[in-house]
Amino acid sequence: MSKSEAISWFRIQEMFRFQSFHMYGIIGTAVVLGIIITYVIKKYKLRDYQGNPIVFTPKEMSVSRYLIGGIIFGLGWALTGACPGPMFVNIGFQYWSILIAVVGALAGTYMYGVIKDRLPR
């Protein structure tokens, strides 16, 4: 992830400005590989290391939840240039200020837990 620079704020900006194929290439490659892996697992009914079948749980259908949640996520993603994974890679990179964003993300997660039942789904 770090080698591909997907953790860089600059790369995320570039993506949202549609000025480079870089991030789309990374995500696209991952998706294509993911589709193949998912297909192979389903077709051959592969099992995990404990011998349990690998099951893909379909997500509950809802438009508003995914759209509104997604928009809020996107607002923060473009601003901090980091989604949850890269945030932690950035700690390893010793960009200590990302810890503020991590604290924010934890607070956001907590807040969601508190007001969850009052949100449209």
Partner: peptide, 27 residues
Amino acid sequence: LLLGGFAVGFGARYAGGCTSGHAISGI
């Protein structure tokens, strides 16, 4: 950083996933 992080944390739970969960695993 704080508000951006907050939006990421809140939105990720609301939408049930982040870039890796939705864009890559989900699609």
